[in-house]
């Protein structure tokens, strides 16, 4: 399969990429690792006229610490995030989530900024960002803004990003030594979660239980009120709206959310 024709520019800087985005708007797409975008282009589900390649911008890659936050550059590849000693120490849930994306080849190419911008509700890193209560750093011609994880995702493959905005970094609170749990149910190697659960310090995030990564609010409230993990997990699917596909119907997804939440809470590791 071959994508439709497009023009290609290797951006010289983040600022250059933003200028091009402002000029071309919805006709342009940002290319980093390309592991969400290129498959869609090969199927002609996406037919951008211009690709703006930010994959080679070192200024957007890397893991660092800034005060209370771990900062991950937008073009940091999943494999590099998963292997980062800093990330593994300061936000182990995030590093682990990166290690669970796809397969080794995919993790060598895919980037955290790309995964969040693509906003697949079944994906690992959006769920991890919600569980960690992180923020997305977004730059556009109007300047820089930060958007909380709970506000960044609007719907299936939809975020608050304006056509001229670029994700430049992701910030998550440093939580060394805080117990966390991560459960992902798949039927095939290198597949997306049929349902996923990430839990940390009373926050519970669900993957593929609705059009965006969701908080399991009822279960979180029960935990806060002193309920056991097992009792709280019974509420994990409350308020969710999972879709149906060939892998699972709605009720099965709700069942998985309850089981996986219990496992995530009962098998938390520090």
């Amino acid at each position: 399969m071959i994508p439709a024709k497009f023009d290609y520019v290797a951006a010289e800087s983040a600022g250059h990429a933003i200028e091009l985005l402002a000029e071309h708007g919805d006709d342009a797409k940002v290319l980093a690792g390309g592991h969400s975008l290129l498959p869609m282009m090969k199927l002609r589900l996406a037919t951008p006229e211009l690709l703006i390649d930010i994959g080679g911008l070192d200024e957007l890659a890397g893991v660092s610490v800034d005060g209370p936050d771990l900062v991950v550059g937008a073009t940091t590849r999943h494999a590099d995030l998963a292997a980062s000693e800093l990330a593994r120490a300061e936000a182990p849930l995030l590093a682990y989530a990166a290690s669970q994306v796809g397969d080794p080849q995919i993790r060598h190419r895919g980037t955290i900024g790309g995964s969040l911008s693509h906003a697949d509700p079944a994906a690992d890193l959006p769920m991890a960002l919600v569980a960690l209560g992180g923020t997305v750093v977004v730059e556009g011609q109007a300047g820089t803004r930060t958007v909380g994880a709970d506000d960044f995702f609007l719907g299936y493959f939809e975020t608050v990003l304006a056509p001229d905005e670029l994700v430049t970094a992701v910030r998550v609170p440093r939580r060394p030594g805080v117990p966390w749990g991560y459960q992902k149910f798949v039927r095939r190697a290198n597949d997306w979660a049929i349902v996923g659960v990430a839990a940390l310090d009373g926050r519970i995030a669900l993957a593929n239980m609705g059009p965006t990564p969701l908080r399991a609010a009822a279960a979180e409230n029960a935990l806060a009120a002193g309920a056991s993990a097992a009792d709280a997990a019974e509420l994990a699917a409350d308020g969710t709206s999972p879709g149906e596909d060939l892998h699972a119907d709605r009720e099965y997804r709700r069942h998985l959310a309850r089981i996986l939440t219990r496992r995530a809470l009962e098998h938390e590791t520090a």
Binding site: Y8, A10, L31, G34, H35, L38, P39, D53, G55, A79, P104, Q105, I106, H108, R109
Partner: peptide, 14 residues
């Protein structure tokens, strides 16, 4: 590093 070359553009390998 191993990559799947059906999902990499030749221009990305430049």
């Amino acid at each position: 590093k191993s990559v799947k070359s059906c999902t990499v553009l030749a221009v990305q390998a430049s």
